[in-house]
């Protein structure tokens, strides 16, 4: 079938301003948008630039706007997005070239919430595992799925308005530790998230949950973090 692929193009070394380029190519309903981009790069215009690696939705490299919605190009199939496809870079992060945006501010926000287990109590003397019940493990299961693709954060109007807002992805990762029964630093994280750039910037618009390619219940996780702040403690 014939596919019309309209792609946002910007080469800072050549272009004064961004523009769109349209490619008409042959494809299959089962093609990934990533396959189409690869085809354009291979046979039509080698300068087209985008990130990708795993090609099956687990590494988080190729988040972009596809027909106005944040998706991973490797997880968006023609049969789901149609044969008229517009591809643009994520909003809210600086475009470096074509579909490549500057991810540094995104990762800086991630780092702010202390994204690592903090537990000063020595592990069991026999050297074995700390115990955790399956129920306690289940509480934060959903938020362990995050691949840091930035689909959620860059779909959030509050983040567009102010990129000092840590954003949904950082809160999701904070949730993963705050609700881990082995972690001891929930209060430090809650302090960060209780600041003016924390959870209260979230106005429950649900864009993030819709955008998440891992189907994480992002808004729900943010809600649980808000509740934890209100109650002043976790359990």
């Amino acid at each position: 079938m014939e596919i019309t692929l309209k792609v946002f193009r910007y080469n800072p070394e050549k272009d004064a301003k961004w523009h769109y380029e349209t490619y008409v190519i042959e494809g299959q309903p089962t093609d990934r948008v990533l396959d189409l981009l690869e085809y354009v790069k291979g046979y039509i215009d080698g300068t087209l630039s985008f990130r990708r690696s795993c090609a099956h939705g687990v590494c988080g490299s190729d988040a972009m706007r596809i027909n106005g919605r944040n998706r991973l190009a490797c997880k968006a199939l023609v049969r789901d997005v149609g044969t008229k496809i517009t591809v643009e870079p994520l909003i809210g992060l600086k475009v470096i070239k074509d579909l490549i945006v500057d991810m540094e501010p995104f990762f800086d926000n991630y780092k702010k919430i202390l994204p690592f287990l903090i537990n000063e109590t020595p592990p069991p003397a026999d050297g074995k595992e700390r115990y955790q019940s399956p129920e306690d493990r289940a509480i934060f299961d959903d938020t362990t799925k995050c691949i840091l693709c930035a689909c959620c954060t860059t779909s959030c109007p509050s983040f567009w308005a102010n990129d000092d807002y840590v954003g949904p992805a950082a809160i999701v990762n904070a949730h993963r530790f705050i609700f881990d029964s082995r972690d001891e630093a929930a209060n430090e994280r809650l302090k960060v998230l209780n600041s003016m750039f924390g959870v209260y910037r979230c106005h429950t618009i649900f864009n993030c949950t819709e955008a998440c390619p891992r189907e994480i219940q992002v808004t729900k996780a943010i809600g649980e973090v808000k509740m934890a702040i209100l109650r002043g403690k976790i359990k």
Partner: peptide
């Protein structure tokens, strides 16, 4: 596990 890896657990927490 001590570093924080969230392994799935057995009913008794291992």
């Amino acid at each position: 596990e001590h570093m924080g890896l969230p392994f799935d657990r057995t009913p008794d927490g291992k």
